[in-house]
């Protein structure tokens, strides 16, 4: 639905995530990231950043920000669905593509929820600094 030539906003979601919390999660559960929090494609890019920066530890770096960005955007996208009933989902049902220009792909039960809430796509913006990563996502229909 378009009003005055503009996309119609169907939902808004935000999330702020503490970078140190992400670092702790990574440090304690590196074996759980792939195919649980990150899709295979996201994990491949995450590993590539680690290899590029030659950093296996969870110190503040591009890899930590990459992980924080994915988690914050996934959470914000889930909120942006605006579903009145909470659909059961896995983190990998939401895939975050791109780096500076983010896009979001949704599958599984969340994909069905998107259809029900008339939310065919998302627009995302994210900002990370040394302490926090803030994601802002809106659901839009055209």
């Amino acid at each position: 639905m378009t009003v005055g030539g503009c996309d119609m906003v169907t939902g808004v979601g935000t999330d702020i995530i503490d970078i140190s919390r992400v670092r702790r999660l990574w440090s304690d559960h590196c074996d759980h990231l792939e195919n649980d929090l990150l899709t295979a494609s996201e994990y491949k890019r995450f590993r590539a950043i680690i290899d590029d920066t030659n950093c296996e530890s969870a110190e503040p770096n591009r890899a930590t920000w990459f992980l924080a960005t994915r988690l914050a955007v996934k959470e914000a996208a889930f909120k942006a669905l605006g579903a009145p009933r909470i659909p059961a989902f896995n983190w990998c049902d939401i895939e975050v593509l791109g780096d500076s220009d983010l896009s979001i792909r949704v599958s599984g039960e969340l994909g069905n929820a998107m259809k029900e809430t008339n939310c065919p796509s998302f627009v995302a913006s994210v900002k990370c600094d040394g302490r926090f990563c803030l994601a802002f996502v809106i659901g839009v229909t055209t």
Binding site: R21, L25, D28, H29, H32
Partner: peptide, 14 residues
């Protein structure tokens, strides 16, 4: 607990 904490709890139980 935030959603990241719930994931952390789940991994620790696993």
């Amino acid at each position: 607990a935030e959603s990241i904490d719930v994931a952390d709890i789940r991994f620790r139980i696993e």
